[in-house]
Design a protein around this nucleic acid. Sequence first.
RNA 1: GUCCCCAUAGUUCAACGGAUAGAACAGCGGAUUCCUAAUCCGCAGAUGAAGGUUCGAUUCCUUCUGGGGAUACCA
Length: 544
Amino acid sequence: MIKNWIREKLIKTLDKMGIEEIPDFKVEIPLNNFGDYSSNIAFLLSKKLKQNPRNIALDISKHLLDDKEYFNKIEVAGPGFLNFFLNEKVYSEFLFFEYENPQYWKKANNKKILFEFASVNPTGPITIGHGRQAVYGDILCNIFQTRGHSVEREIYLNNAGKQIRLLGRSLWVRYNNLFKNNYDIPEGGYKGEYLIQTAKKLKDEIKDKFVDKWDSSIADFFNQYAFEAMFEGMKETFDNLSIKFNNIFKEKSLVDDGSVDKVLKELEEKNLTYESEGALWFKVSRFKDEKDKVLIKSDGYYTYYLTDIAYHINKYNRSYEKAYDILGADHVGHLDRMYAALDAFDIPESFLIFILHQYVNLKKNGEIIKMSTRAGNFETLDDLVIAVGKDATRYFFARFDPDTQMLFDIDLAKQKTNENPVFYVQYAHARISNIFKNASEKNVSFDEISTMKNLNSEEEKNLIKEIDRFEEILDSILIDYKINKLTNYLESLASFFHGFYSKHIIVDENDIKTTKERLALCKAVQNTLKGGLSLLGVSAPENM
RNA sequence: GUCCCCAUAGUUCAACGGAUAGAACAGCGGAUUCCUAAUCCGCAGAUGAAGGUUCGAUUCCUUCUGGGGAUACCA
Protein backbone atom coordinates (compact mmCIF):
# COMPACT_ATOMS: atom_id res chain seq x y z
CA MET A 1 0.00 0.00 0.00
CA ILE A 2 1.32 3.40 -0.94
CA LYS A 3 0.14 4.88 2.33
CA ASN A 4 2.12 2.41 4.34
CA TRP A 5 5.10 3.06 2.18
CA ILE A 6 4.92 6.79 2.90
CA ARG A 7 4.35 6.06 6.54
CA GLU A 8 7.55 4.05 6.69
CA LYS A 9 9.45 6.78 4.90
CA LEU A 10 8.19 9.25 7.48
CA ILE A 11 9.11 7.06 10.41
CA LYS A 12 12.61 6.57 9.07
CA THR A 13 12.99 10.27 8.51
CA LEU A 14 11.83 11.16 12.01
CA ASP A 15 14.25 8.61 13.34
CA LYS A 16 17.04 10.28 11.38
CA MET A 17 15.97 13.61 12.87
CA GLY A 18 16.34 12.12 16.31
CA ILE A 19 12.65 12.20 17.20
CA GLU A 20 11.60 9.33 19.41
CA GLU A 21 8.20 8.08 20.46
CA ILE A 22 6.43 8.81 17.24
CA PRO A 23 2.70 9.35 17.78
CA ASP A 24 0.04 7.50 15.81
CA PHE A 25 -0.18 9.77 12.80
CA LYS A 26 -2.18 9.51 9.61
CA VAL A 27 -1.41 9.39 5.95
CA GLU A 28 -4.39 9.99 3.76
CA ILE A 29 -5.57 11.04 0.36
CA PRO A 30 -6.60 14.67 0.80
CA LEU A 31 -9.53 16.38 -0.83
CA ASN A 32 -9.19 18.84 -3.63
CA ASN A 33 -5.78 17.85 -4.88
CA PHE A 34 -3.86 19.41 -2.06
CA GLY A 35 -1.42 16.65 -2.84
CA ASP A 36 -1.36 13.00 -3.82
CA TYR A 37 -1.17 12.09 -0.16
CA SER A 38 -0.99 14.11 3.02
CA SER A 39 -0.10 13.65 6.65
CA ASN A 40 -1.02 15.29 9.93
CA ILE A 41 2.18 14.24 11.69
CA ALA A 42 3.38 17.78 12.33
CA PHE A 43 0.28 18.63 14.39
CA LEU A 44 0.79 15.65 16.60
CA LEU A 45 4.46 16.40 17.19
CA SER A 46 3.89 20.05 17.88
CA LYS A 47 3.00 19.67 21.54
CA LYS A 48 5.86 17.36 22.28
CA LEU A 49 8.49 19.38 20.51
CA LYS A 50 6.94 22.64 21.65
CA GLN A 51 7.21 24.02 18.16
CA ASN A 52 4.88 25.45 15.60
CA PRO A 53 3.52 22.60 13.43
CA ARG A 54 4.45 24.49 10.29
CA ASN A 55 8.11 24.59 11.23
CA ILE A 56 8.13 20.91 12.08
CA ALA A 57 6.51 20.12 8.76
CA LEU A 58 9.07 22.19 6.90
CA ASP A 59 11.84 20.38 8.68
CA ILE A 60 10.44 16.97 7.84
CA SER A 61 9.94 17.90 4.21
CA LYS A 62 13.57 18.95 3.85
CA HIS A 63 14.78 15.62 5.16
CA LEU A 64 12.36 13.66 3.01
CA LEU A 65 13.37 15.43 -0.15
CA ASP A 66 16.69 13.61 -0.06
CA ASP A 67 14.60 10.92 -1.75
CA LYS A 68 14.42 12.81 -5.02
CA GLU A 69 13.58 9.75 -7.06
CA TYR A 70 10.25 9.20 -5.27
CA PHE A 71 8.96 12.65 -4.39
CA ASN A 72 8.38 15.29 -7.02
CA LYS A 73 7.49 17.82 -4.41
CA ILE A 74 6.52 18.07 -0.76
CA GLU A 75 4.47 21.05 0.29
CA VAL A 76 3.70 22.39 3.69
CA ALA A 77 0.21 23.81 3.60
CA GLY A 78 -2.26 25.48 5.88
CA PRO A 79 -1.44 25.22 9.58
CA GLY A 80 1.00 22.38 9.00
CA PHE A 81 -0.20 19.69 6.64
CA LEU A 82 2.46 17.83 4.75
CA ASN A 83 1.35 17.28 1.17
CA PHE A 84 3.24 14.76 -0.90
CA PHE A 85 3.44 14.75 -4.67
CA LEU A 86 4.77 11.42 -5.80
CA ASN A 87 6.92 10.56 -8.74
CA GLU A 88 5.36 8.37 -11.46
CA LYS A 89 7.85 5.73 -10.47
CA VAL A 90 6.01 5.04 -7.23
CA TYR A 91 2.70 4.51 -8.97
CA SER A 92 4.33 2.40 -11.58
CA GLU A 93 5.85 0.10 -8.98
CA PHE A 94 2.69 -0.35 -7.01
CA LEU A 95 0.48 -0.87 -10.02
CA PHE A 96 2.96 -3.32 -11.42
CA PHE A 97 2.80 -5.33 -8.24
CA GLU A 98 -1.00 -5.34 -8.22
CA TYR A 99 -1.12 -6.27 -11.87
CA GLU A 100 1.28 -9.16 -11.41
CA ASN A 101 -0.54 -10.45 -8.32
CA PRO A 102 -4.17 -10.70 -9.37
CA GLN A 103 -5.24 -11.43 -5.81
CA TYR A 104 -2.82 -9.12 -4.09
CA TRP A 105 -5.20 -8.52 -1.17
CA LYS A 106 -5.39 -12.13 -0.03
CA LYS A 107 -3.56 -13.27 3.05
CA ALA A 108 -2.85 -16.78 4.28
CA ASN A 109 -5.29 -18.02 6.89
CA ASN A 110 -4.13 -18.64 10.39
CA LYS A 111 -6.40 -17.64 13.27
CA LYS A 112 -9.38 -19.93 13.74
CA ILE A 113 -12.52 -17.99 14.54
CA LEU A 114 -16.21 -18.73 14.74
CA PHE A 115 -19.06 -16.63 13.45
CA GLU A 116 -22.58 -17.31 14.58
CA PHE A 117 -25.30 -15.55 12.66
CA ALA A 118 -28.79 -15.89 11.24
CA SER A 119 -29.74 -17.84 14.34
CA VAL A 120 -33.47 -17.44 14.17
CA ASN A 121 -36.36 -19.33 15.57
CA PRO A 122 -37.06 -21.91 12.90
CA THR A 123 -40.72 -21.12 13.02
CA GLY A 124 -41.40 -19.81 9.56
CA PRO A 125 -39.94 -18.40 6.38
CA ILE A 126 -37.00 -16.06 6.84
CA THR A 127 -37.97 -12.43 6.88
CA ILE A 128 -36.25 -9.58 5.15
CA GLY A 129 -34.99 -8.41 8.53
CA HIS A 130 -33.16 -11.65 9.12
CA GLY A 131 -32.02 -11.57 5.52
CA ARG A 132 -30.01 -8.52 6.36
CA GLN A 133 -28.26 -10.38 9.12
CA ALA A 134 -27.62 -13.47 7.01
CA VAL A 135 -26.12 -11.48 4.15
CA TYR A 136 -24.20 -9.25 6.51
CA GLY A 137 -22.73 -12.21 8.40
CA ASP A 138 -21.77 -14.04 5.25
CA ILE A 139 -19.97 -11.04 3.79
CA LEU A 140 -18.19 -10.22 7.02
CA CYS A 141 -16.96 -13.82 7.13
CA ASN A 142 -15.67 -13.50 3.57
CA ILE A 143 -13.70 -10.43 4.50
CA PHE A 144 -12.18 -11.98 7.60
CA GLN A 145 -11.28 -14.99 5.54
CA THR A 146 -9.58 -13.08 2.81
CA ARG A 147 -7.51 -11.14 5.33
CA GLY A 148 -6.03 -14.15 7.02
CA HIS A 149 -8.56 -15.76 9.32
CA SER A 150 -9.79 -19.30 9.22
CA VAL A 151 -13.51 -18.76 9.54
CA GLU A 152 -16.34 -21.10 10.41
CA ARG A 153 -19.94 -20.04 9.84
CA GLU A 154 -22.42 -21.44 12.28
CA ILE A 155 -26.15 -21.18 12.66
CA TYR A 156 -27.83 -22.01 15.94
CA LEU A 157 -31.38 -23.24 15.76
CA ASN A 158 -33.66 -22.84 18.74
CA ASN A 159 -35.55 -26.09 18.46
CA ALA A 160 -36.02 -26.83 22.12
CA GLY A 161 -38.01 -23.98 23.55
CA LYS A 162 -41.48 -22.63 23.88
CA GLN A 163 -41.65 -21.24 20.37
CA ILE A 164 -41.12 -24.63 18.79
CA ARG A 165 -43.89 -26.06 20.95
CA LEU A 166 -46.18 -23.29 19.79
CA LEU A 167 -45.19 -24.02 16.24
CA GLY A 168 -45.91 -27.71 16.65
CA ARG A 169 -49.29 -27.01 18.15
CA SER A 170 -50.07 -24.48 15.43
CA LEU A 171 -49.29 -27.11 12.83
CA TRP A 172 -51.51 -29.58 14.64
CA VAL A 173 -54.37 -27.09 14.48
CA ARG A 174 -53.82 -26.50 10.77
CA TYR A 175 -53.68 -30.24 10.19
CA ASN A 176 -56.88 -30.89 12.11
CA ASN A 177 -58.66 -28.07 10.36
CA LEU A 178 -57.99 -29.82 7.04
CA PHE A 179 -60.44 -32.38 8.36
CA LYS A 180 -63.11 -29.77 8.77
CA ASN A 181 -62.44 -29.37 12.45
CA ASN A 182 -62.32 -25.96 13.92
CA TYR A 183 -59.51 -25.62 16.40
CA ASP A 184 -57.96 -22.27 17.12
CA ILE A 185 -54.30 -21.39 16.74
CA PRO A 186 -53.03 -21.05 20.31
CA GLU A 187 -52.33 -17.72 21.91
CA GLY A 188 -49.01 -16.50 20.56
CA GLY A 189 -49.00 -19.25 17.93
CA TYR A 190 -48.11 -19.04 14.26
CA LYS A 191 -50.86 -17.94 11.95
CA GLY A 192 -48.97 -17.74 8.67
CA GLU A 193 -50.28 -19.44 5.53
CA TYR A 194 -47.12 -21.46 5.21
CA LEU A 195 -48.21 -23.86 7.96
CA ILE A 196 -51.26 -24.79 5.92
CA GLN A 197 -48.97 -25.98 3.14
CA THR A 198 -46.95 -27.98 5.64
CA ALA A 199 -50.16 -29.41 7.10
CA LYS A 200 -51.32 -30.55 3.67
CA LYS A 201 -48.06 -32.32 3.07
CA LEU A 202 -48.35 -33.98 6.46
CA LYS A 203 -51.90 -35.06 5.74
CA ASP A 204 -50.73 -36.81 2.58
CA GLU A 205 -48.18 -38.71 4.63
CA ILE A 206 -50.10 -39.74 7.72
CA LYS A 207 -53.74 -39.38 6.66
CA ASP A 208 -56.00 -38.95 9.69
CA LYS A 209 -53.67 -40.61 12.21
CA PHE A 210 -53.61 -37.71 14.70
CA VAL A 211 -56.97 -36.12 14.12
CA ASP A 212 -58.48 -35.05 17.41
CA LYS A 213 -55.61 -36.74 19.24
CA TRP A 214 -53.12 -34.92 21.39
CA ASP A 215 -50.64 -36.05 23.99
CA SER A 216 -47.01 -35.34 24.72
CA SER A 217 -45.60 -37.83 22.23
CA ILE A 218 -47.88 -36.50 19.51
CA ALA A 219 -46.73 -33.02 20.45
CA ASP A 220 -43.12 -34.16 20.05
CA PHE A 221 -43.97 -35.52 16.63
CA PHE A 222 -45.56 -32.26 15.50
CA ASN A 223 -42.76 -30.17 16.96
CA GLN A 224 -40.19 -32.24 15.15
CA TYR A 225 -42.12 -32.35 11.89
CA ALA A 226 -42.76 -28.62 11.88
CA PHE A 227 -39.15 -27.86 12.74
CA GLU A 228 -37.80 -30.03 9.92
CA ALA A 229 -40.21 -28.51 7.44
CA MET A 230 -39.30 -24.95 8.43
CA PHE A 231 -35.63 -25.75 8.42
CA GLU A 232 -35.83 -27.19 4.92
CA GLY A 233 -37.37 -23.94 3.78
CA MET A 234 -34.66 -21.92 5.48
CA LYS A 235 -31.92 -23.94 3.82
CA GLU A 236 -33.48 -23.31 0.45
CA THR A 237 -33.65 -19.59 1.14
CA PHE A 238 -30.00 -19.48 2.19
CA ASP A 239 -29.05 -21.52 -0.85
CA ASN A 240 -30.72 -19.01 -3.11
CA LEU A 241 -28.47 -16.37 -1.61
CA SER A 242 -25.39 -18.60 -1.71
CA ILE A 243 -25.06 -18.61 2.04
CA LYS A 244 -23.57 -21.81 3.34
CA PHE A 245 -22.94 -22.74 6.94
CA ASN A 246 -20.11 -24.96 8.06
CA ASN A 247 -22.02 -25.98 11.17
CA ILE A 248 -25.67 -26.28 11.97
CA PHE A 249 -26.02 -26.33 15.71
CA LYS A 250 -29.31 -27.39 17.26
CA GLU A 251 -30.28 -26.18 20.68
CA LYS A 252 -31.92 -29.53 21.41
CA SER A 253 -28.59 -31.34 21.14
CA LEU A 254 -27.37 -29.48 24.22
CA VAL A 255 -30.35 -30.70 26.17
CA ASP A 256 -30.06 -34.25 24.85
CA ASP A 257 -26.36 -34.70 25.55
CA GLY A 258 -26.59 -33.39 29.09
CA SER A 259 -24.61 -30.17 28.51
CA VAL A 260 -27.40 -28.08 29.92
CA ASP A 261 -27.72 -30.16 33.05
CA LYS A 262 -23.98 -29.97 33.52
CA VAL A 263 -24.14 -26.18 33.39
CA LEU A 264 -26.90 -26.20 35.96
CA LYS A 265 -25.00 -28.49 38.24
CA GLU A 266 -21.85 -26.40 38.11
CA LEU A 267 -23.74 -23.19 38.75
CA GLU A 268 -25.44 -24.76 41.72
CA GLU A 269 -22.12 -25.99 43.07
CA LYS A 270 -20.72 -22.52 42.76
CA ASN A 271 -23.71 -21.27 44.69
CA LEU A 272 -24.74 -18.97 41.86
CA THR A 273 -28.37 -20.03 41.66
CA TYR A 274 -31.42 -19.77 43.88
CA GLU A 275 -35.08 -20.65 43.79
CA SER A 276 -37.81 -18.09 43.86
CA GLU A 277 -41.46 -18.13 42.87
CA GLY A 278 -41.07 -21.70 41.69
CA ALA A 279 -38.32 -20.85 39.22
CA LEU A 280 -34.55 -21.28 39.31
CA TRP A 281 -32.54 -18.07 38.97
CA PHE A 282 -28.95 -17.21 38.09
CA LYS A 283 -27.22 -14.50 40.10
CA VAL A 284 -26.36 -12.24 37.19
CA SER A 285 -26.09 -9.33 39.60
CA ARG A 286 -23.04 -10.97 41.14
CA PHE A 287 -21.13 -10.20 37.94
CA LYS A 288 -22.85 -7.35 36.16
CA ASP A 289 -25.10 -4.46 36.93
CA GLU A 290 -28.10 -6.38 35.71
CA LYS A 291 -31.12 -8.12 37.10
CA ASP A 292 -30.94 -11.81 37.93
CA LYS A 293 -32.33 -14.08 35.26
CA VAL A 294 -34.42 -17.22 35.18
CA LEU A 295 -32.76 -20.47 34.11
CA ILE A 296 -35.63 -22.88 34.71
CA LYS A 297 -39.16 -21.61 34.55
CA SER A 298 -41.77 -22.57 37.10
CA ASP A 299 -43.33 -24.87 34.52
CA GLY A 300 -40.08 -26.83 34.47
CA TYR A 301 -38.91 -25.79 31.01
CA TYR A 302 -35.45 -24.36 30.37
CA THR A 303 -35.09 -20.78 29.21
CA TYR A 304 -33.25 -19.78 26.07
CA TYR A 305 -30.74 -18.10 28.33
CA LEU A 306 -29.79 -21.36 30.01
CA THR A 307 -29.28 -23.30 26.82
CA ASP A 308 -27.39 -20.38 25.34
CA ILE A 309 -24.95 -20.48 28.25
CA ALA A 310 -24.32 -24.14 27.53
CA TYR A 311 -23.92 -23.27 23.87
CA HIS A 312 -21.26 -20.65 24.50
CA ILE A 313 -19.33 -22.92 26.82
CA ASN A 314 -19.44 -25.44 24.04
CA LYS A 315 -18.01 -22.85 21.65
CA TYR A 316 -15.20 -22.07 24.05
CA ASN A 317 -14.33 -25.74 24.42
CA ARG A 318 -14.03 -26.06 20.67
CA SER A 319 -10.91 -23.90 21.02
CA TYR A 320 -11.53 -21.03 18.67
CA GLU A 321 -9.41 -17.99 19.12
CA LYS A 322 -12.52 -15.83 19.14
CA ALA A 323 -16.23 -16.24 18.71
CA TYR A 324 -18.36 -13.58 17.06
CA ASP A 325 -22.12 -13.44 17.59
CA ILE A 326 -24.08 -11.36 15.12
CA LEU A 327 -27.39 -10.40 16.63
CA GLY A 328 -30.27 -8.07 16.02
CA ALA A 329 -30.56 -4.93 18.10
CA ASP A 330 -33.36 -6.48 20.15
CA HIS A 331 -30.70 -8.62 21.82
CA VAL A 332 -28.83 -5.81 23.57
CA GLY A 333 -30.09 -7.03 26.90
CA HIS A 334 -28.51 -10.38 26.25
CA LEU A 335 -24.92 -9.13 26.14
CA ASP A 336 -24.14 -8.46 29.77
CA ARG A 337 -26.05 -11.54 30.86
CA MET A 338 -23.93 -13.72 28.62
CA TYR A 339 -20.73 -12.10 29.78
CA ALA A 340 -21.84 -12.69 33.36
CA ALA A 341 -22.34 -16.36 32.60
CA LEU A 342 -18.98 -16.65 30.87
CA ASP A 343 -17.42 -15.03 33.89
CA ALA A 344 -18.99 -17.67 36.11
CA PHE A 345 -17.19 -20.30 34.05
CA ASP A 346 -13.89 -18.39 33.95
CA ILE A 347 -14.11 -17.72 30.24
CA PRO A 348 -12.52 -14.37 29.37
CA GLU A 349 -14.81 -11.73 27.94
CA SER A 350 -12.40 -11.17 25.10
CA PHE A 351 -13.32 -14.59 23.74
CA LEU A 352 -16.78 -13.46 22.70
CA ILE A 353 -17.54 -10.45 20.56
CA PHE A 354 -21.08 -9.32 19.92
CA ILE A 355 -21.88 -7.47 16.76
CA LEU A 356 -25.30 -5.90 16.84
CA HIS A 357 -27.15 -4.58 13.87
CA GLN A 358 -30.36 -2.63 13.63
CA TYR A 359 -33.37 -4.12 11.95
CA VAL A 360 -35.04 -3.28 8.71
CA ASN A 361 -38.11 -1.16 8.32
CA LEU A 362 -40.27 -2.00 5.40
CA LYS A 363 -42.06 0.41 3.20
CA LYS A 364 -44.83 -1.05 1.14
CA ASN A 365 -47.55 0.80 -0.73
CA GLY A 366 -46.15 3.97 0.75
CA GLU A 367 -46.66 2.70 4.28
CA ILE A 368 -44.09 1.70 6.85
CA ILE A 369 -44.98 -1.73 8.12
CA LYS A 370 -43.80 -3.74 11.07
CA MET A 371 -42.83 -7.30 10.56
CA SER A 372 -44.05 -10.08 12.74
CA THR A 373 -43.60 -13.75 12.03
CA ARG A 374 -46.23 -14.70 14.53
CA ALA A 375 -48.95 -12.49 13.12
CA GLY A 376 -48.28 -14.11 9.78
CA ASN A 377 -48.01 -10.76 8.12
CA PHE A 378 -44.56 -10.15 6.74
CA GLU A 379 -42.39 -10.02 3.68
CA THR A 380 -40.25 -13.04 3.10
CA LEU A 381 -36.69 -13.01 1.98
CA ASP A 382 -37.61 -15.46 -0.76
CA ASP A 383 -40.06 -13.00 -2.26
CA LEU A 384 -37.37 -10.37 -2.32
CA VAL A 385 -34.80 -12.62 -3.97
CA ILE A 386 -37.32 -13.67 -6.58
CA ALA A 387 -38.21 -10.05 -7.27
CA VAL A 388 -34.76 -8.46 -7.46
CA GLY A 389 -32.31 -11.35 -7.75
CA LYS A 390 -29.48 -12.59 -5.63
CA ASP A 391 -26.93 -9.98 -6.66
CA ALA A 392 -29.12 -6.99 -5.97
CA THR A 393 -30.38 -8.45 -2.69
CA ARG A 394 -26.92 -9.08 -1.34
CA TYR A 395 -25.54 -5.80 -2.59
CA PHE A 396 -28.45 -3.84 -1.22
CA PHE A 397 -28.14 -5.23 2.30
CA ALA A 398 -24.39 -4.74 2.25
CA ARG A 399 -24.71 -1.04 1.47
CA PHE A 400 -26.03 0.00 4.86
CA ASP A 401 -24.12 0.70 8.03
CA PRO A 402 -25.26 -2.11 10.34
CA ASP A 403 -25.77 0.42 13.13
CA THR A 404 -28.50 2.25 11.28
CA GLN A 405 -32.02 1.20 10.71
CA MET A 406 -32.50 0.80 7.05
CA LEU A 407 -35.65 1.53 5.21
CA PHE A 408 -36.50 -1.06 2.66
CA ASP A 409 -38.79 0.26 0.00
CA ILE A 410 -40.19 -2.92 -1.44
CA ASP A 411 -42.11 -1.25 -4.22
CA LEU A 412 -38.98 0.47 -5.40
CA ALA A 413 -36.89 -2.66 -5.13
CA LYS A 414 -39.37 -4.64 -7.15
CA GLN A 415 -39.97 -2.13 -9.91
CA LYS A 416 -36.80 -0.31 -10.64
CA THR A 417 -33.92 -2.60 -10.01
CA ASN A 418 -31.81 -0.51 -12.36
CA GLU A 419 -31.48 2.03 -9.62
CA ASN A 420 -29.47 -0.41 -7.63
CA PRO A 421 -25.81 0.67 -7.74
CA VAL A 422 -24.76 -2.94 -8.06
CA PHE A 423 -25.26 -2.51 -11.80
CA TYR A 424 -22.97 0.46 -11.85
CA VAL A 425 -20.15 -1.58 -10.36
CA GLN A 426 -20.88 -4.63 -12.46
CA TYR A 427 -20.98 -2.50 -15.58
CA ALA A 428 -17.47 -1.25 -14.94
CA HIS A 429 -16.33 -4.84 -14.74
CA ALA A 430 -18.14 -5.83 -17.92
CA ARG A 431 -16.79 -2.80 -19.74
CA ILE A 432 -13.26 -3.87 -18.98
CA SER A 433 -13.96 -7.35 -20.27
CA ASN A 434 -15.12 -5.76 -23.45
CA ILE A 435 -11.97 -3.70 -23.75
CA PHE A 436 -9.94 -6.87 -23.68
CA LYS A 437 -12.13 -8.37 -26.32
CA ASN A 438 -11.52 -5.33 -28.43
CA ALA A 439 -7.79 -5.48 -27.82
CA SER A 440 -7.53 -9.08 -28.83
CA GLU A 441 -9.50 -8.38 -31.99
CA LYS A 442 -6.90 -5.77 -32.81
CA ASN A 443 -4.16 -8.19 -31.86
CA VAL A 444 -2.82 -6.09 -29.06
CA SER A 445 -1.45 -8.20 -26.25
CA PHE A 446 -0.34 -6.80 -22.95
CA ASP A 447 1.99 -9.37 -21.56
CA GLU A 448 5.35 -7.66 -21.94
CA ILE A 449 5.04 -4.75 -19.58
CA SER A 450 8.02 -3.73 -17.55
CA THR A 451 7.02 -0.29 -16.31
CA MET A 452 3.93 1.85 -16.40
CA LYS A 453 5.50 5.20 -16.84
CA ASN A 454 3.17 6.41 -19.53
CA LEU A 455 0.22 6.53 -17.19
CA ASN A 456 0.60 10.19 -16.35
CA SER A 457 -2.87 11.67 -16.54
CA GLU A 458 -4.86 12.69 -13.50
CA GLU A 459 -7.43 9.98 -14.24
CA GLU A 460 -4.81 7.27 -14.38
CA LYS A 461 -3.04 8.40 -11.25
CA ASN A 462 -6.31 8.59 -9.35
CA LEU A 463 -7.28 5.16 -10.52
CA ILE A 464 -4.01 3.69 -9.29
CA LYS A 465 -4.45 5.44 -5.96
CA GLU A 466 -7.95 4.07 -5.70
CA ILE A 467 -6.88 0.50 -6.39
CA ASP A 468 -4.28 0.94 -3.73
CA ARG A 469 -6.96 1.70 -1.12
CA PHE A 470 -8.57 -1.73 -1.35
CA GLU A 471 -6.54 -3.53 1.29
CA GLU A 472 -6.86 -0.64 3.67
CA ILE A 473 -10.65 -0.71 3.30
CA LEU A 474 -10.76 -4.42 4.02
CA ASP A 475 -8.58 -4.07 7.10
CA SER A 476 -10.66 -1.27 8.50
CA ILE A 477 -13.73 -3.50 8.22
CA LEU A 478 -12.01 -6.05 10.44
CA ILE A 479 -11.99 -3.38 13.11
CA ASP A 480 -15.41 -1.75 12.91
CA TYR A 481 -17.40 -4.41 11.00
CA LYS A 482 -18.92 -1.83 8.70
CA ILE A 483 -19.14 -3.75 5.47
CA ASN A 484 -20.84 -0.87 3.72
CA LYS A 485 -17.35 0.57 3.33
CA LEU A 486 -16.74 -2.10 0.75
CA THR A 487 -19.73 -1.24 -1.44
CA ASN A 488 -18.86 2.38 -1.04
CA TYR A 489 -15.33 1.71 -2.18
CA LEU A 490 -16.38 -0.34 -5.18
CA GLU A 491 -18.74 2.39 -6.32
CA SER A 492 -15.94 4.87 -6.02
CA LEU A 493 -13.50 2.66 -7.91
CA ALA A 494 -16.09 2.08 -10.63
CA SER A 495 -16.70 5.80 -10.83
CA PHE A 496 -12.99 6.54 -11.27
CA PHE A 497 -12.87 3.91 -13.94
CA HIS A 498 -15.89 5.19 -15.86
CA GLY A 499 -14.38 8.66 -15.75
CA PHE A 500 -11.06 7.38 -17.06
CA TYR A 501 -12.78 5.36 -19.76
CA SER A 502 -14.77 8.23 -21.14
CA LYS A 503 -11.77 10.51 -21.34
CA HIS A 504 -9.15 8.20 -22.81
CA ILE A 505 -9.05 5.80 -25.68
CA ILE A 506 -7.55 2.69 -24.20
CA VAL A 507 -6.86 0.53 -27.21
CA ASP A 508 -4.98 2.74 -29.62
CA GLU A 509 -3.16 0.96 -32.45
CA ASN A 510 -1.01 4.00 -33.07
CA ASP A 511 0.44 3.93 -29.59
CA ILE A 512 1.00 0.34 -28.60
CA LYS A 513 3.22 1.20 -25.67
CA THR A 514 0.65 3.30 -23.89
CA THR A 515 -2.10 0.88 -24.85
CA LYS A 516 -0.31 -1.96 -23.11
CA GLU A 517 0.15 0.02 -19.96
CA ARG A 518 -3.46 1.09 -19.96
CA LEU A 519 -4.55 -2.47 -20.44
CA ALA A 520 -2.48 -3.46 -17.45
CA LEU A 521 -4.19 -0.74 -15.46
CA CYS A 522 -7.58 -2.00 -16.62
CA LYS A 523 -6.61 -5.49 -15.58
CA ALA A 524 -5.70 -4.32 -12.10
CA VAL A 525 -9.00 -2.44 -11.82
CA GLN A 526 -10.90 -5.45 -13.01
CA ASN A 527 -9.17 -7.80 -10.59
CA THR A 528 -9.99 -5.48 -7.74
CA LEU A 529 -13.63 -5.08 -8.78
CA LYS A 530 -13.93 -8.81 -9.15
CA GLY A 531 -12.30 -9.39 -5.78
CA GLY A 532 -14.61 -6.92 -4.07
CA LEU A 533 -17.71 -8.29 -5.74
CA SER A 534 -16.76 -11.81 -4.84
CA LEU A 535 -16.38 -10.82 -1.19
CA LEU A 536 -19.91 -9.46 -1.43
CA GLY A 537 -21.02 -12.67 -3.06
CA VAL A 538 -22.13 -10.76 -6.12
CA SER A 539 -21.33 -11.88 -9.63
CA ALA A 540 -18.87 -10.04 -11.86
CA PRO A 541 -20.36 -10.40 -15.36
CA GLU A 542 -18.30 -10.29 -18.54
CA ASN A 543 -21.25 -8.89 -20.47
CA MET A 544 -24.23 -6.79 -19.57
C1' G B 1 -37.91 6.10 34.45
C1' U B 2 -33.13 3.66 33.09
C1' C B 3 -29.89 1.58 29.23
C1' C B 4 -28.37 0.83 23.80
C1' C B 5 -28.41 2.47 18.39
C1' C B 6 -29.59 6.40 15.08
C1' A B 7 -30.47 11.81 13.26
C1' U B 8 -26.28 14.81 7.14
C1' A B 9 -29.33 17.49 0.20
C1' G B 10 -36.41 16.42 -1.76
C1' U B 11 -35.20 10.79 -1.00
C1' U B 12 -31.75 6.56 0.19
C1' C B 13 -26.87 6.50 1.93
C1' A B 14 -21.06 8.20 2.68
C1' A B 15 -17.24 10.93 5.26
C1' C B 16 -10.19 7.40 9.50
C1' G B 17 -10.69 14.43 14.93
C1' G B 18 -8.46 17.68 9.59
C1' A B 19 -8.10 21.81 4.72
C1' U B 20 -13.89 23.76 0.13
C1' A B 21 -19.09 17.63 3.97
C1' G B 22 -19.02 13.15 -0.87
C1' A B 23 -22.25 9.85 -3.98
C1' A B 24 -26.66 7.79 -6.02
C1' C B 25 -31.79 8.55 -7.23
C1' A B 26 -35.23 12.47 -8.29
C1' G B 27 -34.81 17.91 -10.92
C1' C B 28 -32.54 21.16 -14.74
C1' G B 29 -28.86 21.60 -18.97
C1' G B 30 -25.31 19.14 -22.13
C1' A B 31 -22.18 14.80 -24.51
C1' U B 32 -22.45 9.09 -28.95
C1' U B 33 -18.94 9.38 -37.20
C1' C B 34 -14.22 6.52 -31.79
C1' C B 35 -13.17 0.14 -26.88
C1' U B 36 -21.15 -1.03 -24.45
C1' A B 37 -24.93 5.90 -23.10
C1' A B 38 -26.64 0.36 -17.51
C1' U B 39 -21.80 5.70 -19.15
C1' C B 40 -19.72 10.70 -18.88
C1' C B 41 -19.71 16.30 -18.04
C1' G B 42 -22.16 20.69 -15.88
C1' C B 43 -26.04 23.35 -12.55
C1' A B 44 -28.94 23.53 -8.06
C1' G B 45 -29.43 21.42 -3.11
C1' A B 46 -27.65 19.20 3.59
C1' U B 47 -24.64 18.35 9.14
C1' G B 48 -32.04 18.28 14.37
C1' A B 49 -31.07 22.39 18.75
C1' A B 50 -27.86 24.55 22.47
C1' G B 51 -23.37 24.41 25.14
C1' G B 52 -18.25 22.30 25.96
C1' U B 53 -13.15 19.98 24.75
C1' U B 54 -9.51 21.10 20.54
C1' C B 55 -4.95 24.73 16.55
C1' G B 56 -9.27 22.26 14.05
C1' A B 57 -15.78 18.89 15.48
C1' U B 58 -20.67 15.74 11.06
C1' U B 59 -17.12 12.91 14.11
C1' C B 60 -15.46 13.33 21.13
C1' C B 61 -18.32 15.09 25.97
C1' U B 62 -23.08 17.28 28.32
C1' U B 63 -28.18 18.66 27.89
C1' C B 64 -32.48 18.86 24.84
C1' U B 65 -35.73 17.24 20.65
C1' G B 66 -37.20 13.31 17.35
C1' G B 67 -37.15 7.86 15.53
C1' G B 68 -36.12 2.64 16.78
C1' G B 69 -34.84 -1.16 20.32
C1' A B 70 -34.15 -3.25 25.40
C1' U B 71 -35.92 -3.25 30.34
C1' A B 72 -39.96 -11.45 29.71
C1' C B 73 -40.58 -17.35 33.87
C1' C B 74 -40.14 -14.99 24.42
C1' A B 75 -36.11 -16.42 21.58
